[in-house]
Amino acid sequence: MRIELTVNGEKHLIEAEPEETLLKILRDKLGLTGAKKGCDTGTCGLCMVILDGKTVKSCQIKAKKLKMNKVVTVEGLGKPGALHPLQKAFIEHDAVQCGFCTPAMLIVALDLLSRNPVPSREEITKTVSKVLCRCTGYIPIIRAIESLAEENKRKLTSKNKPQT
């Protein structure tokens, strides 16, 4: 079957098997290897991407359910020299060790901050809990996201402050 996906703003016409997963399409057909495969049971969350504005485990989405969808993967965030603030925060807070969970962590964080620019620590922790990480103990990841939440809060309050 033929599907049309707009991935990170770029349109692709793809020939796929109905049972093929979105993860496989992204990795094998589009060369976007940021999303990883870490399990066979939909548990690890390492394959997270944003599909039509919602985070999904791309290993759980079959091609037959897709048509004309919009997908955002880690490759769509920012490039060296023009990094997304989240990427910068991950580097600065040492939220990256082996890096295998990093693309998925960035995706769930991006989604959270786009819905709620000033999430609480609880909300951040809940979001980070969607993805497994064996290296970092999650603390640096939570702090990286929190640093952006704080920055957003500062921006919001300074904007709301009446001009003097």
Partner: peptide, 17 residues
């Protein structure tokens, strides 16, 4: 900062698979 972090946050870092 980790010297290999940049590649890892952009999704450019290649793992074997």
């Amino acid at each position: 900062n980790r010297v290999d972090a940049l590649d890892k946050v952009t999704g450019a870092a290649k793992y074997t698979a």
